[in-house]
């Protein structure tokens, strides 16, 4: 765990979970940040994923499950249950990121990531109650595990709370 006071920082292909009064932070580009929160227990977690699917990726080394939406989201849900006793039925989601920062790239990875995240969360029956995605600039998000609110700053814009 990387923390300063009550702050957890999430890097790429990573999951961090915790409870109030922790804050979980990350910075995103084409990656998607998935924030899951259990209102009653005041616990939550964040997944910083980079790709939609783990299928068909030629990889070196073991599978880093948090890289992908199809493996990372189930792991986040599982960790919240096992470590914090937060049942899936009480979880809601907020999603961020999926920007197209580099122009001239043919595939829109951010958009693909967002679509995959929405599909997988729907399959698990977790409702997305807020989202801020797309565009061409990076996102900095700060997830407050006391309130479930996420402070989202898109580069060059004023922060908004969701």
């Amino acid at each position: 765990m990387t923390m300063t006071d009550n702050v957890l920082i999430v890097g790429i292909a990573d999951i961090k979970t915790g409870k109030a009064p922790f804050l979980i932070k990350t910075t995103l580009g084409s990656c998607i940040g998935v924030c899951l929160y259990h209102q009653e227990k005041k616990v939550g977690g964040m997944l910083h994923l980079m790709l939609a699917s783990s299928e068909g990726i030629v990889r070196t080394g073991e599978l880093k499950r948090a890289k992908f939406a199809d493996t990372g989201i189930p792991d986040l849900i599982h960790e919240l249950k096992v470590k914090h006793d937060a049942d899936i039925s009480g979880l809601s989601a907020k999603i961020f990121g999926g920007a197209k920062v580099l122009q001239g790239v043919t595939s829109d990875i951010g958009k693909n990531n967002e679509e995959a995240v929405r599909t997988i969360l729907k399959q698990f029956g977790v409702k997305i109650i807020a989202s801020k995605t797309g565009g061409e600039k990076g996102y900095q998000i700060e997830f407050d595990l006391d309130t479930g609110k996420v402070l989202c700053k898109i580069f060059g814009q004023e922060p908004v709370e969701l």
Partner: peptide, 18 residues
């Protein structure tokens, strides 16, 4: 953001390697 730029920079390698 510096972290956004770096993330995009390593994405070509990071997809396949840890």
């Amino acid at each position: 953001f510096a972290a956004t730029l770096f993330e995009e920079y390593i994405s070509a390698i990071a997809a396949e390697s840890n």
